[in-house]
Design a protein around this nucleic acid. Structure first.
Lengths: 110, 110
DNA sequence: ATTATATGTAACCAATTGGTTACATATAAT
DNA sequence: ATTATATGTAACCAATTGGTTACATATAAT
């Protein structure tokens, strides 16, 4: 789970996920072509995503085909919404209002 | 958005969120008491969470009261599920099966 | 058989991160 | 007025991160 959060904490890696999602089976080279940084840099990002199980790689000859795996994100979401359920239900709007009025009060004091 | 992902990419910071969520209005000192690291280290983590808008701070005299703000996470989730909706719907199971068979095939080759 | 392509690994480096100690300040309690 | 408490800031440091170049290997194409 820590690996997933860490993997998602970099813009390039999130973009790689976006790209692979829309281009299932993309090769390393296809992914590299999307970015300005070197092939090696992209390769490292892919490795981090792979270790977080966000990408699944299929080898075919000298090529590597990449597939997006949504399950770790689903797992995080499940844990998250469960833990934070009190905030994601009707109570949300009340909370919003409370925070906003708190902030207004704060601004007046500041 | 990058700030939010980065803020979530550290175990201690996720634990701070958990704690503040269940202890709305907690003081800096209350949060510090939950961890082994120094007050300063915790303070830095809090600052990162604050800048990501995941914590809202209300000053009261010499104290700082902390409140969890779920909205950035909600925003991420909205963006995420929208972008990845093709995977979070009925298709999910088909995809899972596809990946699993792919992996089996891969294991046999390896 | 030779050449081109797809990818991997090693060594290195600057920037960022996560932590520390030491010192400072503002409010509350006595 | 003095002391204790809650929090802030500065300077520093080791570890991690994100990138690079140089070299290597395995498969596909000619």
């Amino acid at each position: 789970m820590d690996k997933v959060f860490n993997a998602l904490a970099h813009e390039t890696r999130r973009q790689i996920l976006d790209f692979v999602m829309q281009n299932a089976g993309a090769l390393s080279g296809d992914i590299t072509a999307q970015f300005e940084v070197s092939r090696i840099a992209v390769s490292k990002h892919i490795k981090i995503l792979e270790r977080a199980n966000l990408l699944i790689i299929e080898k075919s000859g000298r090529e590597r085909l990449h597939y997006f795996n949504p399950m770790p994100i689903q797992a995080i979401y499940d844990r998250w919404t469960d833990a934070y359920s009190q905030f994601f239900a009707p109570k949300l709007n009340a909370f919003k209002t409370e925070i906003e009025s708190t902030e207004e009060a704060h601004e007046k004091t500041a």
